[in-house]
């Protein structure tokens, strides 16, 4: 297993991370350093624990009663599961965008303003709404209809609104769990372009079952698979260009050439 070497640029790091649901070990011994301002893709067959790992990175697994971890996740060197750490603050610094766009049944404006208000944002709200919609490449399409219900937007627009909503609370990392799987190809490419723009300011981790998407859109790729005990493990991690042209591990090769199983 390769661990990323570029130590100084690591924003979040999983050390010997195992994740359990009750007594079932869903993910075992993951060592993964995520680089700042890069897009990191996590790929692998269904059920290998991609979403589980992603949710561990911002303590979303806390919502699952049976879930618990071994090992550590260090964000800027700080253990995010340490007792003194506030999970709400973790989720503010490390935002998440889901597979199915899930805007609130409110206006476009309120979708952005709501989270910011909850987080105690005191600045100019109009400005924040405009800036985040700009950053999510949605402003031009909605600026005349900010009062319109978010649910009236197309799927791709809704997903960009959800990205804007995540940006509004000023995170450092954006986690995306199959953010395009409900979108058509054009909307998908728009999100990928947006990810590229966002990576200038943010670090992005995307889980995708679409290998072409990982190849197109990411800088680094981590390949996960399932062991005989059904526990997910990381097989190989490296530059996306290397993983898709010269994978080192036979299991990676078999998966990305489509000869898995």
């Amino acid at each position: 297993m390769t661990t990323q070497t570029n130590e100084n640029n690591i924003i979040i790091q999983a050390n010997d991370l195992s994740i359990y649901y009750g007594s079932f070990r869903a993910v075992k011994n993951v060592n993964l350093g995520i680089q700042r301002n890069k897009i990191t893709a996590i790929i692998g067959p269904s059920g290998c624990g991609k979403s589980t790992v992603l949710r561990a990175f911002n303590r979303m697994n806390d919502f699952v009663q049976s879930a618990h971890n071994d090992g550590k996740i260090l964000f800027h060197g700080q253990d995010i599961y340490a007792p003194e750490v506030d999970p709400v603050q973790v989720r503010q610094m490390i935002g998440m965008v889901f597979q199915k766009p899930n805007p609130f049944p409110k206006s476009i404006y309120e979708n952005i303003a709501w989270g910011a208000r909850i987080n105690g944002y005191k600045g100019n709200m109009d400005e924040l709404v405009e800036n985040t919609l700009q950053a999510a490449a949605l402003w031009d399409e909605v600026k005349d209809n900010l009062k319109k219900s978010a649910l009236a937007l197309s799927g791709g627009q809704q997903q960009r609104l959800c990205i804007a909503r995540a940006l509004a609370v000023k995170p450092e990392i954006i986690l995306m769990d199959e953010p395009c799987s409900a979108l058509d190809p054009i909307a998908t490419l728009k999100i990928e372009d947006l990810m590229r723009e966002l990576s200038v300011k943010y670090s992005i981790i995307i889980v995708t079952h679409n290998m072409q998407q990982a190849a197109r859109a990411s800088d680094l790729t981590a390949f996960f698979t399932m062991d005989e005990d059904r526990a997910g493990l990381m097989v190989e991690y490296g530059e996306t260009s290397q993983i898709f042209t010269r994978p080192k591990d036979k299991r990676t090769e078999d998966y990305i050439t489509g000869r898995f199983g």
Binding site: F244, R246, I256
Partner: peptide
Amino acid sequence: QQPMAHDLR
């Protein structure tokens, strides 16, 4: 066919 890795090489 979007070949990858060995197929692509």
